[in-house]
């Protein structure tokens, strides 16, 4: 196992290196001027020139690239051009928000998706099955912003159940969870759909297995048997779906973060793009890629643990 993890980790190094280079080059060929973006349109030409010089923006690209790699090698993501703070700090300050949002969405996906997936499978082709399948297809098809808009209009404005600003400046854990519900639900709808579909087909596979059929034919209490197996087998689709769609989840989180005005990786990426804050943008892209690589690795490991039929490569 350890050697497998090590091998997988090693194999991600060239990928990460490629990512670094792509990010570095792409950002620097982008139009727009960090000096103007940062100092404002009323800044004098002298001030702009001075800023560019100070930030090393006048250095040749290859020199900037070298500095960038040197920084990284020493474990630093550099310093933000806008705030002057270490990029690692900015990332660390928003990362929990994105993670709690993503996990919140996955949580909703599981508690809603798994039961209805199993129910669908048990009453296959019954009206409940049809109903849930249509609902899940709708869930898959709902554009993220439409869900968010409708949820806000109903739950925040009409019924006043949840606040619109989902990030309190203080408050305890419960407050934080309470504030997370609406955005997580909004982002989680697509996960509900994916997990429901996976759970359903996994269940159908299980129900098709000989031992279940035999058990049922022998008059064993069918429901209990199915639920017992279902719960064990539900783990597989969850792991699969989380691994497959984690990138999509983090991507869609950008929209959730914008609409709910939450801090997060995606929102900070859009912000740094706007401000041409090269260093922060680099850091964010690297961290988000790293996150996906890690999740993929974890998924593979979980998959191997949960389902002994899958042999490690």
């Amino acid at each position: 196992m350890a050697s497998y993890i090590l091998k997988r980790l090693m194999s991600t190094i060239p990928t990460l290196f490629g990512i670094l280079t792509i990010v570095f080059v792409m950002i620097r060929i982008a139009p727009g001027d960090p000096a103007l973006a940062i100092l404002g349109d009323n800044a004098s030409q002298e001030a702009l020139d001075a800023f560019r010089e100070r930030m090393g923006l006048n250095d040749p690209m290859i020199v900037q690239y070298w500095d960038f790699l040197k920084d990284l090698a020493s474990g630093s993501l550099g310093v933000s051009m806008v705030t002057g703070k270490p990029v690692a700090d900015s990332v660390a300050s928003v990362l929990p928000f994105t993670l709690e949002l993503a996990f919140g969405a996955i949580f909703f996906g599981i508690i809603i998706g798994v039961p209805i997936g199993i129910i669908s499978a048990i009453w296959r082709n019954g009206w409940l099955d049809y109903f849930f399948r249509v609902v899940s297809l709708l869930g898959l098809s709902f554009p993220a912003f439409l869900t968010a808009i409708l949820l806000i209009l109903w739950l925040s404005i009409e019924w006043r159940i949840f606040p619109v600003i989902s990030t309190p400046t203080g408050g305890g854990l419960w407050d934080r969870i309470y504030n997370l519900i609406l955005p997580a639900l909004s982002l989680g709808i697509i996960m509900v759909a994916y997990i429901m579909r996976s759970a359903r087909s996994a269940m159908l596979d299980v129900m098709g297995e000989d031992y279940i059929r035999t058990a049922r034919a022998k008059g064993a209490p069918g429901r209990r048997l199915i639920w017992h197996h279902a719960l064990r087998n539900a783990l597989i689709p969850i792991v699969t779906v989380v691994g497959l769609y984690f990138g999509l989840l983090i991507g869609n989180a950008v929209l959730t973060e914008i609409i709910f005005n939450r801090p997060g990786l995606g929102k900070l990426i859009v912000l740094s793009l706007n401000q041409r804050d090269y260093t922060t943008l680099q850091g964010l892209m690297i961290v988000s890629a790293l996150m996906i690589v890690i999740v993929n690795l974890l998924t593979d490991l979980c998959y191997a643990l949960v389902d002994p039929r899958v042999k490690l490569k």
């Binding site: 727009g32 973006a37 706007n274």
Partner: peptide, 12 residues
């Protein structure tokens, strides 16, 4: 159509 700071650069 440009992002605001890119536009500021372009018009200058």
């Amino acid at each position: 159509v440009m992002e605001h700071s890119a536009w500021h650069k372009a018009i200058r």
